[in-house]
Structures are given as C-alpha cells and as structure tokens.
C-alpha cells in the first residue's frame, strides 16, 4: 500500500492497488458485465452500483502515439523525449500510457502491446506502462 500514488481516491483505489501488485485491474459491472474505465462509483452502462475489480489480460493494441519533446511541467524536462500512447485494451476501454523498451521508429498503429508496471522517467508510480508484445515490430498493421 505504500506504493499507492498520492492522487488515488476511494473510487480509483482498486486500480492502483492492482498496479502496486503488478496486475492491471478494471471495474466490471456485476449486473450487466460491462467493463469501464476510468473508474467511477456506478456503472455508466446500466447505472448499477454493484461493481467489482477484475484482473484483465493487460493486452491491447496501439491506437496512437506521440514522442513528446516539450515537457508540460518543468519537473518532466529530464524525461523528454518520451513516448505517450493511447492503448485500446482487449476488453474495450482506452488507456493513456507510456511505451517503454522501444523507440518511435519501430512503432506502427495497431501493434500488439502488453502492460508492464514501473516508473517512467516521470517519478510517479508504479504506473501501468506498455511495451510491444514479443518485442518485435512485425505485428503492425
């Protein structure tokens, strides 16, 4: 628990507990089975209040990415350039994350990704980060 980010709230606690345990977890509705992200206190699909945290595969595809050269905050200056990405999870929700263990020239939209946990150069975490599955660039579409 000492690895929970300072910004976690009661509604998002389950997500960050999962990250601290090295597992990607999403909210799922007990009544209609819909996945949802970001977390909230009710199911956005059927308005049920019965939600559970469930582990997900951590697999997804690269929906978009950018190599950031201009840091938004002075404390992020040492981290540039870094790769910011949108990842469409197998379960459906879209996440924003950083890509690690790769470089921009290898990336193609649609590539298969998997979650890993760590601290990007941004000194917060552990955060869910993503890397190419199998470490190859051959799966791009």
């Amino acid at each position: 628990m000492n690895d929970m980010p300072e910004f976690a709230t009661p509604e998002t606690q389950g997500f960050w507990e999962g990250c601290a345990a090295g597992e990607l977890r999403l909210q799922r509705c007990n009544d209609c089975s819909a996945w949802q992200f970001p977390p909230r206190a009710f199911c956005q699909t059927c308005r049920s209040n019965a939600l559970s945290w469930e582990p997900v595969t951590g697999r997804g595809r690269l929906a978009s990415f950018t190599e950031v050269h201009r840091a938004p905050l002075p404390e992020m200056r040492e981290a540039v350039p870094y790769l910011l990405a949108l990842v469409e999870l197998e379960e459906g929700p879209m996440m924003m994350s950083n890509l690690v263990d790769t470089d921009a020239s290898r990336l193609r939209l649609g590539m298969a990704l998997e979650a890993v946990f760590g601290r990007p150069g941004l000194k917060r975490g552990p955060l869910p980060l993503f890397r190419l599955r199998d470490g190859t660039a051959s799966e791009g579409t």
Binding site: F7, V68, R70, P72, M96, S97
Partner: peptide, 27 residues
C-alpha cells in the same frame, strides 16, 4: 493547460495539450 488532462489517468504519463492533439494527428 496540461491540467485539462485526467489527473490520474492522463497527467501522470506526461500529458500535454499538444501531445493529446498529436495523438489525434497520428490517428
């Protein structure tokens, strides 16, 4: 402007408004 990013699920990854539009641009 970076504060328009989600405080838990966008900002911690180094979100900025130009970066978000860059994601739109790539797609």
């Amino acid at each position: 402007l970076a504060q328009v990013g989600h405080p838990q699920f966008e900002q911690p990854f180094g979100f900025s408004v130009p970066a978000a539009y860059a994601l739109v641009a790539r797609a």
